[in-house]
């Protein structure tokens, strides 16, 4: 039986989600979503899983990947709970779960790590282009 994880909300917030706990389960987001069908309903269901921290349900769901982040749900949310942003954050969180190196999780969550990585990539690009004779 799924058990509530009280710390999950804090974890997902690190991946960019915010205010999703303002949700009062009206279902407007699911109604407005052009990709949600009677068999595959989201985003409300995923907001609910995230609120309760049901990680297994989230990991086994394909629904986060069906969303293409048009933002209709966030526009129509009466509580400004920002469901679209939560869907995006869930994809980031899932990516971090699949990645055994832990690198993607670090890049998503830590701004400094992200900036450092960017600088490294930029430096490497410039360096490579310099050594390969372009000027």
């Amino acid at each position: 039986m799924p058990t509530i994880n009280p710390n999950f909300a804090n974890e997902i917030i690190k991946f960019g989600a915010k205010d999703f706990n303002l949700c009062f389960n009206c279902g407007n987001c699911t109604a407005i979503c052009s990709l949600s069908t009677n068999d595959e309903t989201f985003p409300r269901e995923l907001i609910r899983y995230s609120t309760l921290g049901l990680e297994d349900e989230l990991k086994s769901s394909l629904k986060p990947w069906l969303c293409y982040y048009c933002g209709e749900c966030s526009t129509h949310c009466p509580r400004q709970a920002n469901p679209g942003e939560l869907m995006m954050s869930l994809r980031r969180w899932l990516t971090a779960q699949y990645d055994w190196t832990g690198l993607s999780g670090l890049l998503y969550k830590n701004l400094w790590a992200y900036i450092l990585a960017m600088i490294t990539v930029l430096g490497a690009t410039i360096g490579l282009s310099y050594f390969s004779g372009y000027s």
Binding site: I4, L52, L54
Partner: peptide, 16 residues
Amino acid sequence: VKVKDYLTSKKEIILK
């Protein structure tokens, strides 16, 4: 606490 949560499609959910 064990409850059938009507907001999570009546899933049985546990809270310690």
